[in-house]
């Protein structure tokens, strides 16, 4: 790293004070993160059940939005059927625990494999096509999954599955809202961590190359179909795992949870906060959940407001709420 000290001819030289500033910002950032994490950890001690319920839901959406962010934000693909993966996970857990009495924790690897397979089935053939075809195919696919859930016997038809067993962790039966608060907080932190590591890796860079210029990326030896499929499948796993825990928390799932609106809602979270930026996506997910709680009584207007916000954001501030890293 000795070469870093060479001073560029025309570029603003990274002087000593700027370097110190940068270090200070990094240190500040870590401090802020620690404070936020600490606050999130102690919250159940002071907050009432209503607040905890909402925040648990918010952490849950953080996981979903970060998963979709890998597809939309990193790889630049529009997926309009993301709720399908969430459904695959939820139904895998639901069916295996309630029909076959499988332990909840054992259903997670099954759900991961199921989401991966679904991701490959839908992504494999369509990722070679134009990106707008992918959008419409995922939309149709999301509907197919919902209609299957609605009409198959094993998924409980229109009324869905009920009485899904709640899991135990180290002998503790998870049945209180503050238990689930911590479970979803842990999942959200894990999702942030994985997203961060992926974004700053060979794979993350490859996604960005393909997003910026597919042809140039191909010419550099990057197989665009394989790289997109990679993003698609990892996004699917995020959705699937979130679905498992969703089923365990709710103990009941029905096909209407996985409607097209759900996919759009998750997309709104990603676009709102800022595609491809982890803090932005987290804020976007929180905005999704908190907004209808803060502005009570908008009820049926909720989706309309989100739609207008998404339109305004994409037209006037396509980088989302969170500021861009570099200009």
């Amino acid at each position: 790293m000795s070469k870093q000290s060479q001073t560029p001819k025309a570029a603003p030289a990274p002087s000593r004070s700027m370097l110190l500033d940068w270090l200070a910002i990094q240190r500040n950032r870590i401090t802020i993160l620690m404070i936020l994490a600490g606050m999130a950890m102690v919250l159940p001690l002071v907050a009432n059940n209503y607040v905890l319920e909402i925040l648990t839901n918010a952490w849950f959406y953080v996981v979903l939005c970060l998963g979709l962010n890998i597809v939309v934000g990193y790889a630049g693909l529009l997926d309009l059927g993301y709720a399908a993966f969430f459904a695959v996970g939820a139904y895998t857990t639901g069916i295996l625990t309630s029909e076959f009495g499988v332990n909840f924790w054992l259903t997670i690897p099954v759900a991961v494999v199921a989401s991966m397979i679904t991701g490959v089935i839908i992504g494999g053939p369509t990722l070679r096509l134009r990106s707008d075809y992918l959008a419409i195919v995922t939309l149709g696919f999301g509907e197919i999954v919902r209609i299957c859930a609605r009409n198959l016997e094993i998924t409980g038809g229109a009324s869905g599955l009920i009485g899904i067993e709640r899991p135990s962790l180290f002998g503790l039966h998870l049945n209180q809202i503050n238990h689930f608060y911590y479970v979803f907080l842990a999942l959200a932190i894990l999702a942030c961590f994985i997203s961060y590591r992926l974004q700053h890796s060979r794979l993350g860079r490859a996604w960005q190359y393909v997003r910026e210029d597919e042809d140039a990326a191909e010419a550099m030896g990057i197989g665009r179909v394989a790289i997109k499929l990679y993003a698609y499948v990892i996004g699917a796993i995020f959705g699937g795992v979130a679905g498992c825990f969703f089923a365990a928390k709710m103990t009941a799932i029905s096909p209407e949870t996985f409607m097209f609106q759900q996919s759009v809602l998750i997309l709104v979270g990603v676009v709102l906060g800022g595609m491809g930026k982890i803090p932005g996506v987290v804020i976007g997910a929180f905005a999704l959940v908190l907004f209808p709680e803060v502005f009570r009584g908008i009820g049926s207007m909720r989706m309309l407001v989100f739609a207008v916000v998404m339109l305004v954001i994409i037209l006037y501030r396509p980088e989302g709420i969170w500021p861009a890293r570099r200009t």
Binding site: D132, A135, V271, M303, V308, L311, I314
Partner: peptide
């Protein structure tokens, strides 16, 4: 991607 999201947003509106 932005154009597709715009079209989707219009549809939702």
């Amino acid at each position: 991607l932005s154009i597709l999201i715009t079209a989707l947003a219009v549809s939702m509106v």
